[in-house]
Design a binder for these strands. Sequence first.
DNA 1: TGAGCAAATGATAACGATATCTTGATAACG
DNA 2: CGTTATCAAGATATCGTTATCATTTGCTCA
Lengths: 337, 337
Amino acid sequence: MSRTGKKQPDPLGSMSLTMADLAQLAGVSKITVSRALSDSPLVTLKTRERIQALAREHGYKLNVSARNLRLRRSHTVAVIVEMKPSIDRTMFDPYPLVLLGGISQELTAAGYSVLLTTRQGASAAAVQAADGLILLGQGVHQDAVRRFDKLGLPMVVWGSRGKGDTQIVVGGDNRQGGAIVADHFVAMGRRHPVFIGNPSHPEIFERLNGFVDALALHGIKPLLMRRDEFTPDSGMDAVHSLHARGVTFDAIFACSDLLAMGAIRATMELGHSVPGDVSVVGYDDMPVGASFMPPLSSVRQDWQEGGTLLARKVLALINGHSTSSETLPVTLIVRST
Amino acid sequence: MSRTGKKQPDPLGSMSLTMADLAQLAGVSKITVSRALSDSPLVTLKTRERIQALAREHGYKLNVSARNLRLRRSHTVAVIVEMKPSIDRTMFDPYPLVLLGGISQELTAAGYSVLLTTRQGASAAAVQAADGLILLGQGVHQDAVRRFDKLGLPMVVWGSRGKGDTQIVVGGDNRQGGAIVADHFVAMGRRHPVFIGNPSHPEIFERLNGFVDALALHGIKPLLMRRDEFTPDSGMDAVHSLHARGVTFDAIFACSDLLAMGAIRATMELGHSVPGDVSVVGYDDMPVGASFMPPLSSVRQDWQEGGTLLARKVLALINGHSTSSETLPVTLIVRST
DNA sequence: TGAGCAAATGATAACGATATCTTGATAACG
DNA sequence: CGTTATCAAGATATCGTTATCATTTGCTCA
């Protein structure tokens, strides 16, 4: 059958070639075209090149759906992100995007695409058709994590490793993060540290743990100021309420840079000096922090690397290899505070 | 043929049902199943419900590839983002994520998925298979925009409308943004304003234009401090070099909050007061700005709304309707500076 | 020279869904 | 009672690839 005559013009009037069309043009069978385009050695180099040239020349585009159908895989990894800043402030910072960048780069290089969804949209058919799953910023939604796990897809999670959990987890070393801040405070001679943050996030709970344990080695017990929001206002509020309660303190570990900046501001407004009277360390090393007055010390994580790792691990799982959870080291960036 | 016996267990040992399987279970033909699942009135309500229940019970999942192949569309919109912060600092802030959130929400609701890529990865087959294209943060890469346009896909761009461009563009009203800042300065009695930023970004060029034109109405000509980076350091540097040149100024319009904060810091370090001697306004209204000392005035854009709009417009194009470019109003948030 | 073998290509049949065209059954009507 | 309208459900073909098996071609070597 001559297919050429039956082609439907697409919305722009151009024709979309199929392998059958190319085959006819080249005077070979379509399977040969298929092999040639995937650089199979089953086809002579000469025909292979001839067909590839022809494909380029005519702007041939592989029909992904057809290939996916035949191969029974979608070459797609679904990434589930928390994108409503109103719900989870953690995600209201640039890093998820950097993480996404790392993921995207690595997956694209491996011939996979990134399907982006929110937790809500994750029930869509396309997500279930994905070959793998990456979960970002779902720390507070452990139930959701388990629900996704039930899909039975290769899955990797960004966050903090729980005891009972069996998933593959990649994340910064929050325990170490807490510990190095503790050591820093001790080295500075601080004896009355405060922790500000929301420990119901597993990651932050770990930071707190690392902080508390490392301080305990020096017989110091920090004060926990629980604050749920990751905003400067929340940090200011924490310091004000410390002051109102008449608590004395000489160091603050805020589990986010925004909190830290708010805390510094409040501290200074109350007539104390930073870092003279009070040392402050934040978390995430946001670009603004470096230009804050005074420049903010902070714990830095390598987000890009995290993304790369997440991607590599799903790919490994997809290809039937085994992987393990991995914890990325963090570094303390000491600036003025 | 009895298919049941031939099923391959997936990696987890569960079987993936097809419509044919469901059909056999229900004792109907597969086309009836297809119709029942898409709620077609061509099937009796009773059978329809019976089949739907059966599908739920057995955890049937539609094979998206097969449907896409048959329907000749992918139900996918590719979003091309600049994700390398090292390359483009504009993207090193939370907003692209909010934009993505709006896009994702809207597209998911319409049954479409979001395929996320970088400019580099956009040549991948999956992108060309998308039903539509959304470009984010490609302002400086007009050549890239035109290249994507050549794909002939329904396309919508976030950014600033160029004169000769024929694409559908959605973006904040940068001209207005510049103008309201100018008016604000004039109302404050400022006569010697400075603009800091990189006008080779079309968006920022517009801000500058709006600023200059609105000031011209009052016979004021601002000074342009061209700075390519969107960092606080860059803002500090700009102010320092103004000082070194002996220029006097009483107002600064920085085209990003980070620049503004750097500028404020430098101004204060040089012994001037903000806002006493110098008024400063930034752009984007970052959360940190509100807690900066002094709290930063800034121009705010509605990113979530922008995302929603971008999505609606591609969908319109995909469905063969016509749309037009749209410019979103911005608001000046006046705080202390 | 022709058996034997490798290399190159082809024919056919899936993959799982849906559009189009039929068929079968029931009801309505003169 | 027979004819037609109406409705529910089925048969078949098709979307564009690729895996499997079969075939052809060219070549070596006895």
